[in-house]
């Protein structure tokens, strides 16, 4: 609890004494920190005079909020109906395999990629679809995964 969260004070200032702001507040904090740590949520609770349980309750309810550090690139595998019937599972397996993720892991050890499943990206006519950060890739086959990941693997050190 010794961590310094003073960088959140500007955000807190923006939302103080306003109602219905918990979700956008947490979105801004997550944008700054990358995820919502328990300590950060405790700090917010103290500063905003909101029970920590309320903050934790909202943070765990919505899938947008992340309670663990996330990789640099977020890969979202669409699990919508159209993708499901077009072998989204095969795409997911190819991604896990290529990223070397095992068991319950969702983030690579080098913190470059986090793999998430989403209910539907709303691009059903391109099924099966993944989104890497804000870019959509559609009509995929398990074989096309490697090439997509390579685009992101090299850029880093440059």
């Amino acid at each position: 609890m010794e961590q310094d969260f003073s960088m959140l004070d500007a955000i807190i200032g923006k939302y103080r004494n306003r109602s219905g702001i918990l979700i956008p507040l947490l979105q801004d904090v997550q944008q700054t920190l990358g995820y919502l740590s328990k300590d950060a949520m405790r700090y917010l609770a103290e500063q905003m005079q909101i029970p920590a349980a309320d903050i934790y309750g909202v943070a765990t309810f919505y899938s947008m909020f992340k309670l663990k550090p996330q990789g640099k690139h977020i890969i979202r595998v669409c699990k919508g109906t159209a993708c499901h019937v077009s072998d989204a599972d095969g795409i997911k397996d190819a991604l896990r395999n290529e990223l070397g993720l095992e068991g319950e892991e969702d983030t690579t050890a080098d913190m470059k990629f986090t793999l998430l499943e989403v209910a539907c990206l709303g691009c059903c006519s391109l099924a099966p679809v993944i989104m890497v950060d804000d870019t959509t890739f559609g009509k995929l086959t398990p074989d096309s995964i490697k090439g997509i990941l390579q685009r992101y693997a090299y850029e880093e050190e440059a």
């Binding site: 699990k79 919508g80 109906t81 159209a82 499901h84 209910a119 539907c120 059903c124």
Partner: peptide
């Protein structure tokens, strides 16, 4: 719009 398989509203 949360139904998987729907993108009318979008």
């Amino acid at each position: 719009e949360g139904d998987p398989g729907a993108f009318m509203d979008r």
